[in-house]
Amino acid sequence: MKALFDMISDDAEFMNKCKINPILGASFYALNEFVKTGNELAALPWFGLTKMSTRKQAEISKAA
């Protein structure tokens, strides 16, 4: 996931959008920091209904 954020950081068009809209920039920065510190996006409750959260839970159940 970290590599995805690195890829987005190199996307000049998106980063320009973030400069124009500080709230979008803050959203990107906060998610990036969240992942950088070793967390998975699926750990955020906002993603709880998504396929990636379901997949993560299945992985955890399988490992257990």
């Binding site: 995805l4 996307d11 979008l24 998610l31 998504t50």
Partner: peptide, 29 residues
């Protein structure tokens, strides 16, 4: 987020996963 949102670098192309992640960030913003 909607259940069909999926960011899966292992199951999607890197480009597709990156585009979906950007989209999710835009929705949050």
């Amino acid at each position: 987020f909607a259940p069909d949102l999926d960011i899966n670098p292992e199951g999607q192309s890197f480009k597709e996963a990156s585009e979906t992640l950007k989209y999710a960030i835009e929705v949050l913003g």
